[in-house]
């Protein structure tokens, strides 16, 4: 199969859809001749023209609201929000408008739009351009939240997001843009709400999102050398969440480590841990659930500090070993 990057997969998914469906268009800051801050839309304005690749002013509230209003009236917009941190500036439109219009209107009207946005640290862009705020979005009924970790998933999930009749927040991790993977040339769809077991194992389950999927897989390779068999589950979409796959995996391994880059406190890992705590998988647990997440600190600039703020491979290895060494006391 053909290998392309995560970034190319995102672009290809959009371009193929725009060739098929004239209601699909993209808007965002610097997405025209510049090609987007990360180059995702490079070449698209040349193919589709400035009507369908709409370069916007720096007005996150207006562009989010415009996408929503266009979606409500029959278009299927893709909004590229230059950095996911900027969701703060468009929050009213996403949270109070996009997520709620259909419900408030008693089921009339729909908002079929995708908000694509690069998230995560590791680029040295510091505290206002490096956050992982996906848990905020998962808290809002009416939104769907997607976090692809591979080029293959990015293309298939974006197709599903564009086909969905609801507002979908599609988080792309900046450090994954250059990662390569096998990606079919044809369009395909990966249903929202279907997790993927990225590696099978028997001793411990790691549920990891976005870039942490790759770190978990690296940790699994290291741990295998010590005879520890790790299963890595990538939920791929946080809303809807495929609880079944996670529960089944934990029932099999009896141990759970959850890892994400976002700040641990109030992070989505708490939701995943709770899903297990509230399910029948709880009875299968041989050790307490372990959560790994970013430290409760703004992402710092200095590269050493920046790295220290989010989980790294050795942290995951340590967490797995800790889990394996712990036992839940049984009461007679």
């Amino acid at each position: 199969m053909r290998e392309i990057t995560y970034l190319e997969a995102v672009r290809e998914a959009m371009s193929q859809e725009m060739r098929e469906n004239k209601d699909v268009f993209i808007l965002g800051e610097d997405i025209g001749v510049y090609g987007g801050a990360f180059g995702v839309t490079r070449g698209m304005i040349e193919e589709f023209g400035e009507e369908r690749v709409r370069n916007t002013p720096i007005s996150e509230s207006a562009i989010a609201g415009t996408a929503i209003g266009a979606a409500l009236t029959g278009m299927r917009p893709i909004l590229e929000l230059q950095f996911s941190d900027f969701i703060t500036i468009s929050m009213d439109q996403i949270v109070n408008q996009a997520a709620k219009l259909r419900y408030m209107y008693g089921g009339k009207g729909k908002v079929p739009m995708v908000l694509r946005t690069p998230a995560g640290s590791g680029t040295g862009a510091a505290a206002q351009h490096s956050q992982s705020l996906e848990a905020w979005m998962t808290h809002i009924p009416g939104l769907k939240v997607v976090q692809p970790s591979t080029a293959y998933d990015a293309k298939g999930l974006l197709k599903a997001a564009m086909d969905d009749d609801n507002p979908v927040i599609f988080y792309e991790h900046k450090l994954l843009y250059k990662t390569k993977g096998d990606v079919p040339e044809k369009q395909y769809s990966i249903p929202l709400g279907k997790a993927d077991v990225k590696r099978e194992g028997t001793d411990v389950t790691i549920v990891a999102t976005a870039i942490m999927v790759h770190k978990a897989l690296e940790a699994a390779v290291e741990l295998e050398k010590e005879g520890i068999s790790v299963e890595v589950v990538d939920p791929r979409t946080l809303v809807p969440l495929d609880t079944e796959t996670i529960i089944e995996s934990v029932k099999k391994t009896s141990r759970l480590v959850v890892v994400h880059e976002a700040v641990k406190r109030g992070g989505y890992g708490g939701e995943i841990a709770s899903v297990i705590a509230e399910s029948d998988a709880f009875d299968y647990l041989d050790a307490p659930i372990k959560r790994l997440g970013g430290k409760a600190v703004p992402i710092p600039y200095n590269p050493k500090l920046e790295k220290a703020a989010v989980p790294q491979v050795p942290d995951i290895i340590e967490a797995v070993k800790e889990t394996l060494n712990k036992r839940i006391a049984t009461h007679a």
Binding site: I63, G65, A70
Partner: peptide
């Protein structure tokens, strides 16, 4: 809140 939505409808 409705002002950007109106602009979106105008865009459609």
């Amino acid at each position: 809140g409705g002002i950007p939505l109106a602009v979106g409808a105008g865009l459609t």
